[in-house]
Amino acid sequence: MTVIIKKEPFGKTQDGKEVTRFVFEGGRVTVAVLDFGCAIQSVHAPDNQGRLTDVALGYDQVQGYEKNLPYFGVVVGRVAGRIAGGRFSMDGQDYSLTINNGPNNIHGGVTGFSRRLWQSSIDGNVLKMTYNSPDGEDGFPGDVNVTVTYELSEDGSLTLEYTATSSKPCPINLTNHVYLNLSGHNSDDVFDHVAQITADTYVPVNNDLIPTGELSPVADTAVDLRQPTRLRERELAIRRGDLDVTYCVGQNGTLKLVSRISHPESGRFIDTFTTEPGLQFYTAKYMADAVGKGNKQYQPFASFCLETQHYPDSVNHSNFPNTILRPGETYRQKTIYTFGVE
């Protein structure tokens, strides 16, 4: 089998721009990506009986992605996660960003990268998306050019590679925000999933979900997932929001296996490999007012995200891995999501 990419229309934006859906076909898994928001729109993966099910939450029409308050499937930037107060200082200058999450900036701002139409091209079985973010967009400095490529292997590995350059020093921290439920996107919760995340430490946060600056051991806490753990065993902690946490998963720039999430009943699993130092594991506590594919009302705790990234608010914490991209440098990230069957 050879994976091919097919193009099909996905409607028009409110201002009349045509949106395209790119479908990777021919392998064990079928994936669809939009040029709006650079979004993963669907992932059809087989279970242990060979039955294909869409395991990615999302929308049937582009209008959903234009609003998309949960950030289904999109690439978020310039900075994934929260920046405290929407402010940071760099090289002796203060910057103020758009505020869109309580008192903070999250995922780049009101529009960010996730509600933009990206330019697209196909090279064999690789889909290339680019976006040029102008100086001052959402309050960030510098003209930033971003490229994201998607490649799907025959065996079900979806590889995302990100690069970015900037004309001025600027914080950059990109990720994809796909929501998954391995029993199907329209399932009611994820408590029957089993999670393993290979991290000895994590990033504690305050009541505004801003990092305190500490890096704490996971041992003897509800966020310790070093051994395979059925999420039902952590249901109370999940409902409190404890499993909305950035794990410290290893050295920046080194590709490594950082997690396996599995669904024993269907046999499906997803392995995550990344070059990033952080993995944000989120179990959708704040899901609200999201009617998705097939008119499904998506509920809190009915999906999870595996956001490979640097730590949130890194620009305000000198002890966190650096997120400042300077002229002449190139930001690089590689993440692989492998969908398989046990």
Rank of each mutant, 00 (worst) to 15 (best):
V144Y: 12
V146R: 00
H317Y: 09
H193D: 03
V3L: 04
I5W: 11
L255G: 04
V148Q: 10
E151Y: 04
F113P: 06
D54N: 15
A39Q: 05
R51M: 04
G213E: 06
M1S: 10
G58E: 11
A222Q: 06
Y337E: 07
Y162A: 01
N206T: 00
M287H: 01
D91L: 12
D188K: 14
Q93P: 05
V245M: 02
E233R: 07
V144D: 08
G278W: 02
M90R: 13
I122V: 10
Y337I: 07
D138F: 07
T246E: 00
D289W: 10
L215Q: 12
F339A: 09
T30P: 12
G112I: 09
A84V: 11
L69T: 14
A222W: 02
F301I: 06
V79L: 09
I40T: 10
V291D: 06
T175L: 10
T20P: 01
I99F: 01
C248N: 15
L34R: 08
N100H: 06
G328D: 14
N252P: 02
V148R: 01
T149M: 10
Q119A: 14
Q41K: 05
D271A: 07
A84G: 13
Y331A: 03
Q280F: 11
P171K: 09
V315Q: 08
N100K: 08
H107Q: 03
V31G: 09
M129L: 15
C170A: 14
D123I: 09
V258S: 11
S259Y: 01
I172E: 07
P169E: 05
A195C: 06
L158N: 12
F140A: 09
V75C: 15
A222S: 15
Y95E: 01
N145A: 13
D54W: 01
M90Y: 14
T335I: 05
F88A: 11
I197K: 03
Q14L: 12
G86T: 10
H193S: 08
Q333Y: 07
Y59H: 00
Q63T: 12
K168V: 03
N48H: 06
T198P: 00
N181L: 07
P277K: 02
G112C: 07
Q63E: 14
E161I: 13
S96V: 13
H310W: 00
T221P: 00
I197R: 12
N104D: 15
P171S: 07
V223G: 09
S96P: 01
R87D: 07
Y150G: 04
R232N: 13
Y311K: 01
K6T: 08
S216N: 09
A199H: 11
T338A: 15
V148I: 13
T308Q: 07
S96G: 12
S167A: 12
H317L: 01
G241T: 06
T98C: 05
S153R: 11
L209H: 08
L231R: 12
N145S: 08
L34W: 06
V43K: 11
V75I: 10
G156H: 05
